[in-house]
Amino acid sequence: MKFKRKFLAIPYVIFLVGFVIIPVLFIFYYAFTNKAGQFSFENVEKFFSDETNINVLLISLVYAIFNTLICLLLGYPIAYILANKKYNRSPILYMLFIMPTWINFVIRTSATRDLLNWIGISTGSMSSITTMIGLVYNYLPFVILPLYTTMLKIDTYQLEASYDLGANKSTTLFKVLIPMTLPGIISAATMVFMPTLSSYVISDILSEFNVVLFGSYIDLYFNQANWNFGSFMAFIMLCLILVSVLISRKSEKGNEGGSVL
């Protein structure tokens, strides 16, 4: 047998089949069967007949949208400063922003819970605020990272050219900088939006289980041994994520076309 380069992919293919494809097939199987293992649309009916289920989904959507917006608003200027040689001469500052991700996020979140209570933001009575703080804190590095890498690639002379041609600062920002970093913004947004939809540890710990996101709602059913309904909700989440991926890819492509013109 002669060694071929494509053999190198074998370990990953095994991993992919075992841990990605087969589990997804399991989700499909459980989502469209009942407890006796027969094919049925029981779960579809159950999901759409109770408004609670849809409400939980909407709540998660709102949290995800807010989280994405806040992270972008906070992360964009930071990434700009980090990427700009005028303000940041060493990579240490950049490390500081990424460092929180080195600590396990469950430990970090538990510490955040005590910290917030200590400074007087009660995780019990202000649970939606504390959840928001926790989400932003955890996902901010994931926004800074892609924005930082796109901004590094920007030629600063182009910004100077913009000023030379008479544009003021805000015009430069909206007409030059943001369009040029749009791919970074989109990938940052997808990196925050989708995980927030399914996150539940942060909301559980920081809201004393008061804020129920879609992830913890699915967990509630899995915990009670109702695998079929839980899987159906996981399936719905998969669909949502698929849609958001498609949208982001499409807008990325559209943007490329735009920049060529």
Binding site: D50, T52, N53, N55, I59, V212, S216, L220, Q224, N226
Partner: peptide, 12 residues
Amino acid sequence: VIIMWGQVKAYI
């Protein structure tokens, strides 16, 4: 009871 529990937890 499970459905009731889910509704209670998500009640807002």
